[in-house]
């Protein structure tokens, strides 16, 4: 068993950010249909264990490649660039983040569900633009710029999760 192949190679897909996601979905489903433990319940322990390991590996590869953030991070890691959040961000970006956080905290305290929905949508559309930029940077092989943008996106993804948590809290 060869678990050492990278996630792109596992699916036989080109190592690129602009992945054909429909093709990825199709390959993922076909692979799971072969290796999933449910397909191997009748066999001996060794084969069942293998099925679980393969199925786990394919899930991991699929989850990483399917989402743009983790796909970009993984691509950079393959190129030897670890994207960590310790690096300094531009003060302009940090200011914006603080404003966002304040707005979320205020809406949460005021139990303003609709305001949180609005913030959610606004952030989503901002991030969509960022992801488009990211794609361009990958096309131009601008790895350092991509890493900077990715750091910002990691902040924004976290913020999005916070908005969703606030929504859940407000609705309960």
């Amino acid at each position: 068993m060869d678990f050492s192949r990278d996630h792109f190679a596992l699916f036989g897909l080109p190592r690129t950010y602009a992945l054909d996601l429909e093709e990825l979905d199709r390959l993922y489903r076909e692979a799971q249909a072969k290796v999933h433990p449910d397909r191997h319940v009748l066999l001996g322990d060794a084969e069942r264990r293998l099925a679980m390991q393969w199925s786990t590996q394919i899930n991991e590869a699929y989850q990483t490649l399917r989402r743009p953030l983790s796909r970009a991070k993984y691509l950079l890691a393959l190129g030897g660039i670890e994207v960590d959040q310790e690096r300094r961000m531009s003060s302009e970006f940090l200011m914006q983040q603080m404003e966002w956080r304040e707005a979320v905290a205020e809406a949460r305290a005021a139990l303003a569900g609709e305001e949180l929905e609005r913030l959610h949508l606004r952030l989503k559309s901002e991030m969509a633009l960022q992801y488009q930029k990211l794609q361009v940077q990958f096309e131009q092989s601008a790895a350092a710029a991509a890493a900077d943008l990715l750091r910002q996106l990691m902040f924004q993804e976290k913020l999005l999760a916070e908005i969703d948590d606030a929504l859940t809290a407000v609705e309960a």
Partner: peptide, 16 residues
């Protein structure tokens, strides 16, 4: 034998 069979079926699935 099981490991070889599993490898083979994964390759078949992923090579399409």
């Amino acid at each position: 034998f099981a490991a070889r069979r599993m490898n083979q079926s994964v390759r078949r699935a992923l090579s399409g």
